[in-house]
């Protein structure tokens, strides 16, 4: 079998007092101190024909936190994530990603550029590379950290081979964290839904992101799988220190694991704050009750 990455990792881990688990690689790509503003969404609007999917939405995501975005179906949650990761171009507003040395304006930048700046994401309907193995999917998460030169790739000599082996190391760490060792070499298209969701989280995590955007990572899972997934997300946040923006419908999970909750309804941000405050908020109750009445 492969040597466990943790055997050598233990000595490194000792120096970092807060964590219980030894990491060889820092999965957090942010250079900011915990508590510093990481991502700033400023008066973002987006329309589709007559539909206002986002209406002057502003929110701040803080480094090191889990920030949940909730709201009824069609509220604009996915649209907001798509604006942040560059898949949609907002009609107005700014989205700023704070970096160690430079700030990046995300609105209207190319998605691949945004990924390079440190924004990783998962999708509501799993979007994996179906025919590729779990390993290859995770290695694609390393794309921006690798150099891709044609001739060394064709020869597979020197730098190209060394790089493949070096990147494999970090990917194995993610595989261990998410407990998908048994599936390493299988094509992801053949895996169970719950495992695919985990692989998608892994692919985003392998990017060593500054901000991790998760679009309903627990949707369609049974209670047990949900608990597992919630634990992985917590692990990623607490142990690895990765900032997470989480869209989720399950209120219990949201209230449990997030530090801050923002509520969207018909494209409007109707509340934002700590879970307990948001739970009591008039407008939020109304939005959810209203939905129950009409449903």
């Amino acid at each position: 079998m492969l040597a466990s990455p943790h055997q050598q990792g233990a000595q490194h881990g000792c120096r970092r007092a807060v964590i219980t688990r030894a990491y060889r690689h820092d999965l957090n790509g942010s250079h900011l101190e915990p508590g510093a503003p990481q991502l700033e969404v400023d008066r973002v609007s987006l329309t589709f024909g007559g539909v206002r999917a986002l209406d002057d939405v502003s929110l701040d995501v803080v480094q090191g936190e889990i920030h949940a975005i909730i709201g009824p179906n069609g509220a604009g949650k996915t649209s907001l994530l798509n604006c942040i990761s560059g898949l949609y171009r907002p009609d107005g507003g700014r989205i700023i990603l704070h970096g160690g040395d430079a700030d990046h304006s995300l609105a209207r930048a190319r998605p691949s550029r945004i990924a390079r700046w440190g924004v990783a994401r998962s999708f509501q309907n799993i979007e994996l590379f179906r025919h590729l193995s779990v390993l290859d999917n995770l290695l694609l998460g390393r794309h921006v950290h690798m150099r891709h030169r044609l001739l060394p790739s064709l020869w597979y000599w020197g730098s190209a081979r060394r790089q493949e082996i070096a990147q494999r190391d970090l990917v194995e760490e993610v595989i261990d964290l998410l407990e998908i060792q048994a599936h390493r070499h299988k094509p992801v298209g053949s895996l169970a839904y719950g495992i695919q969701k985990r692989v998608e989280l892994g692919r985003a995590l392998a990017m060593q992101p500054a901000v991790l955007l998760l679009d309903e990572p627990m949707a369609g899972m049974n209670v047990e799988e949900k608990e597992d997934m919630a634990r992985y997300v917590l692990d990623v946040n607490e142990l690895a220190g990765v900032t997470v923006v989480l869209i989720e419908h399950d209120m219990e999970v949201v209230m449990d694991i997030s530090r801050r909750v923002s509520v969207l309804d018909f494209g409007l941000l109707i509340a934002s704050g700590p879970p307990d405050a948001v739970r009591q908020d008039e407008k939020v109750l109304e939005a959810y009750l209203g939905q129950e009445h009409t449903a």
């Binding site: 691949s112 790739s153 064709l154």
Partner: peptide, 28 residues
């Protein structure tokens, strides 16, 4: 060799899911 390395992998990513390929940083 090409498809043992990140370059070829990026090609295959575009084939399988071009939006996800962009999202992991492959400039399609």
């Amino acid at each position: 060799n090409l498809f043992r390395t990140g370059l070829g992998r990026a090609f295959m990513a575009i084939r399988d899911q071009d939006i996800a390929a962009e999202a992991v940083g492959v400039n399609t």
